[in-house]
């Protein structure tokens, strides 16, 4: 019987092992990491027959090729990238059963940026500080604490899911319709940040569309565009930050913190992207545009409930298929 593992033939632009994130060590300066699109992670894992937070591969803009060395379930969610298993199409938000020696090949991502690839049994790398996510800056967790490379052999855990069912889910509409303004800007809802009042032209922050600069990564999106006025009392006392925080450094150009952000920061927080829309922000393309839409805690709660409703509905649909 062949060993349960997958071999990275090509990682694409950038790929890493991620799970639901590393919580509990922020007081020691350890960031959260984890999949940038948690909805895609949970959905792909369930289709693969896994726990919702199991470790999977997060691919950036497609392009990855992965050989599946033992028979196992494979599921994709997130950005659509014309994936195929030995020539047979596997769209995003769908799953199939792959035979030993088959090759999963992702084409270029058509819309969105991150695709989660989950395998039945999950990626069986050791948990570090409670999580299998890669902490890329600190160099631990995931596979060897780094981004995936060609030739990497990833162990896959045992799986009770022997179902061979191949099926496709209704994608969450906010994934398909990432672009929601006439100019193609991705609209993300955000709370007013605690230091917003220090920013003289905070209004302009909400009224403009911001381009995502090339110097962006899993730590954060640097925005490009005419700078806002430098914040008053720009030097602040350091405070904890979290993914979703939009900081305004002295150069007046905002930074949207993502999953790999540091645990503390000292720049004024002009806005905080709501939890339900952080994945939408992270699915936006470098070079693409973001538009921040001011919201409040009530709307944030309603948005979380929308996500939960999708997850409940898909969990039921998946359970019926995998019986």
């Amino acid at each position: 019987m062949s060993e349960r593992r997958v071999t990275i033939l090509a990682p694409g632009l950038f790929a890493s092992v991620q799970d639901g994130g590393r919580f509990g060590a922020r007081a020691s300066g350890v960031g959260v990491a984890g999949a940038l699109d948690p909805l895609a992670l949970v959905t792909a894992n369930r289709m693969a027959g896994n726990d919702p937070d199991a470790a999977a591969i997060e691919c950036t803009l497609g392009g990855a090729r992965i050989r599946i060395e033992a028979p196992m379930r494979v599921a994709l969610a997130g950005a659509e990238c014309d994936a195929r298993i030995d020539g047979v199409r596997l769209p995003a938000w769908s799953c199939a059963f792959a035979e030993a020696g088959s090759v999963l090949a992702l084409g270029a991502a058509r819309e969105g940026t991150r695709t989660i690839v989950a395998f039945g049994g999950g990626i069986d790398v050791p948990r570090v500080l409670g999580s299998r996510s890669t902490d890329l800056a600190a160099g631990f967790g995931g596979f060897a604490g780094r981004a995936l490379r060609a030739g990497d052999e990833l162990p896959i855990g045992p799986s009770a899911a022997s179902a061979r069912a191949a099926f496709r889910l209704q994608p969450p509409e906010w994934s398909v319709h990432l672009s929601s303004s006439e100019t193609g800007a991705v609209r993300v809802r955000a709370l007013v940040g605690p230091e917003s009042a220090r920013v003289a032209d905070a209004r302009s922050f909400w009224e403009r569309e911001w381009e995502i600069a090339p110097q962006s990564n899993r730590m954060g999106y640097r925005l490009a565009g005419a700078p806002l006025a430098a914040p008053r009392d720009g030097a602040m006392r350091s405070h904890a930050v979290e993914p979703g925080v939009v900081q305004l450094p002295p150069n007046g150009v905002p930074i949207v913190l993502l999953a790999d952000a540091q645990t503390t920061g000292g720049y004024p927080r002009i806005a905080i992207v709501i939890e339900a829309d952080r994945r939408r922000a992270a699915q936006a393309r470098i070079g693409g545009r973001l538009r921040f839409v001011r919201t409040d805690f009530d709307e944030a709660k309603a948005a979380r409930h929308d996500v939960e409703a999708y997850l409940r509905a898909t969990a039921a649909a998946i359970a019926a298929q995998l019986q």
Binding site: G24, R26, A27, R237, S238, H239, A240, E242, T264, E275
Partner: peptide
């Protein structure tokens, strides 16, 4: 921070300079 972490709903307490941030298990 120690006092806050005694409460089950508080997942993490992260100190800053003159401030403390509590991360909760549930927004509710």
């Amino acid at each position: 921070a120690r006092r806050a972490l005694e409460h089950d709903a508080v997942a993490e307490a992260v100190a800053g300079l003159g401030n403390l941030t509590l991360f909760l298990r549930s927004p509710d």
